[in-house]
């Protein structure tokens, strides 16, 4: 799923099966993606994907590859600092970001622009006004 979505690097995931697709992509990122990406999201988004059972996911840890924040503002600060670190020479794997834009689409878009040229895959729950949208269907 993530290979398919890798270009362009940000996409809205909309439609009746969006949540199922996002959960499958989240699992893929942490379990089977050989790039061993860092995965970043909020507890709210994790609860959306896992129907309120985020604590069961967070408890696992994933060798510090999973970063779950309470607020979008914290995610944005983390991502900006990480982009600065990468630009100053620090090695980092692919970063996969799960978010729900809603009223925060402009802030999220600024963060994506901050990551221009760096290795970020951003997957957004719902319609994404600043880029492409996909409507996944189950096989």
């Amino acid at each position: 799923l993530l290979r398919d979505i890798a270009r362009p690097v940000h996409s809205g995931i909309a439609g009746a099966f969006a949540n199922d697709w996002l959960r499958a992509a989240f699992v893929e990122a942490l379990v089977s993606d050989e790039r061993l990406p860092d995965v970043i999201t909020t507890r709210h988004d994790l609860d959306l994907m896992f129907c309120g059972q985020s604590s069961q996911v967070i408890a696992h840890g994933f060798n510090e590859r999973l970063h779950v924040f309470e607020a979008l503002e914290e995610v944005v600060e983390h991502l900006e600092a990480k982009a600065d670190d990468i630009r100053s020479g620090q090695a980092a794997p692919t970063t996969v970001w799960f978010a729900t834009p809603g009223d925060d689409a402009d802030v999220i878009h600024q963060t994506i622009e901050y990551w221009a040229g760096l290795d970020l895959i951003a997957l957004f729950h719902g319609n994404w006004s600043h880029g492409p949208n996909r409507h996944p269907q189950p096989a």
């Binding site: 099966f17 199922d20 959960r23 699992v27 379990v31 696992h60 096989a139």
Partner: peptide, 17 residues
């Protein structure tokens, strides 16, 4: 197209990893 997966199965996959 993708294969849908119940939440419980997703959690099990994550916890097995």
């Amino acid at each position: 197209l993708f294969t849908t997966q119940p939440v419980s199965e997703s959690i099990a996959l994550l916890q097995q990893s």
